[in-house]
C-alpha cells in the first residue's frame, strides 16, 4: 500500500461484499452459480495442464509386456528365496538379490479375493457391475499373480478359491498391454 493513496494506518476496509444467501439454499454461506462465474461476478482462474510421460519399461516390465503380446505370462525366479515372481522383476524385494532367471507361468489360477464394483468413478450406478479379482496363477509362488477382471460369470456365482483361466485377445489384436487379456473366466 503506497502512502498518499491511503493515509498511513488508515483502514481501507473491504468493498461491499456479497451478502450470504439467506434463502434459496439449504447450506450456509454464499452460493456460487455457474452463471455467476460466467457473468464475472467472481474471479475464476482456469488452467489446464497436460502432463505427458513416456516411461521406459526397462527389462522386467518390457519382458512381461512382450510375453503378453505372445499370449504368455512371464515371471522371474529368485535364486535366493526360490520364489517365482509375477509380474517379474530383476530384483527380489525380500532378499534384495538380482534376478536373471525368466519363466513362463500358466494362464490359469485361483481367485484369491474379489470385489464387485457397482459404481463408476463418478460414483454413478453402473448398469452391469464390474468384477475385479486377484488371481493366483498356476506355476507362480503362492500368493503371486495378477489383478484382472472376471467375465462370463454372474457376480453371485464368484467365490474365493474359484478356478479361472485367461481369455486372450486374438494374436492380431494383442499389443503388449495388460488388456491383451480381456478377463479371466471360470475354468
Amino acid at each position: 500500500m503506497k502512502e498518499g493513496v491511503v493515509k498511513k494506518g488508515q483502514d481501507i476496509g473491504v468493498g461491499r461484499g456479497i451478502e450470504p444467501n439467506p434463502v434459496g439454499s439449504k447450506y450456509a454461506g454464499i452460493e456460487v452459480k455457474e452463471s455467476d462465474l460466467r457473468d464475472g461476478r467472481y474471479m475464476s482462474i482456469r488452467y489446464s495442464a497436460m502432463f505427458r510421460y513416456r516411461w521406459d519399461t526397462g527389462i522386467a516390465v518390457g519382458r512381461f509386456l512382450e510375453g503378453l503380446r505372445d499370449g504368455r505370462i512371464v515371471g522371474s525366479r529368485c535364486n535366493v528365496c526360490k520364489r517365482i515372481l509375477v509380474p517379474p522383476r530383476v530384483f527380489c524385494e525380500l532378499d534384495f538379490a538380482q534376478i536373471d532367471d525368466w519363466v513362463y507361468v500358466y494362464d490359469t489360477g485361483r481367485v484369491n479375493t474379489y470385489s464387485i464394483s457397482y459404481i463408476d468413478k463418478q460414483a454413478r450406478r453402473m448398469s452391469s457391475p464390474v468384477i475385479v479379482a486377484v488371481v493366483e496363477l498356476d506355476g507362480a509362488s503362492q500368493g503371486m499373480g495378477i489383478m484382472h477382471l472376471l467375465g462370463e460369470v454372474r457376480p453371485e456365482d464368484v467365490y474365493v478359491g474359484m478356478r479361472v483361466k485367461a481369455v486372450w485377445r486374438s494374436r492380431e489384436e494383442r499389443k503388449g498391454a495388460i488388456t491383451d487379456i480381456v478377463y479371466f473366466k471360470p475354468l
Partner: peptide, 16 residues
C-alpha cells in the same frame, strides 16, 4: 538417457 532400464531398475543398481 537410460532407455534400457526402468527407474526402479536404475534405483536397484545404484542401491546395490
Amino acid at each position: 538417457t537410460t532407455p534400457h532400464y526402468s527407474y526402479k531398475e536404475l534405483m536397484f543398481l545404484a542401491a546395490r
